[in-house]
């Protein structure tokens, strides 16, 4: 079997195992009360990490490039309650423009 198909199969099985462990083992049973506050904060913590990595990380390096301007413009659009699709388009357009000027 080729390397590509090994990657497809192993990452597919591994990902489903990660996603399904909670739902299959704990499905339908409420979590203990003291964890309720914790799971509610997982969203903000993970989303903020995804924003930070997506804006500043290039592999294992932290860089400042056109994405900073794009995400900054998106933040302004969010502040003025722009719809999500517009926010995404603004981010992509500003980043692409910055890259075009940077050569």
């Amino acid at each position: 079997m080729s390397a590509v198909w090994i990657v497809v199969i192993v990452s597919g099985v591994g990902t489903l195992a990660l996603k399904a462990t909670g739902p299959v083992l704990l499905g339908g049973k409420p979590l203990p009360d003291r964890f309720a506050g914790v799971v509610g904060l997982l969203g903000p913590a993970l989303l903020a990490a995804l924003v930070a990595i997506g804006t500043f990380a290039d592999g294992q390096r932290l860089v400042l490039d056109g994405r900073v301007l794009g995400v900054g413009a998106a933040a302004v659009a969010i502040r003025f309650r722009a719809p999500v699709l517009l926010v995404v388009i603004i981010a992509a357009a500003v980043t692409a423009t910055a890259r075009a000027f940077a050569g």
Partner: peptide, 16 residues
Amino acid sequence: RLGLDAAFPALFLALL
């Protein structure tokens, strides 16, 4: 070139 890689942090920020 189209800046699609910046669309995702922007999307996650809008969700955050």
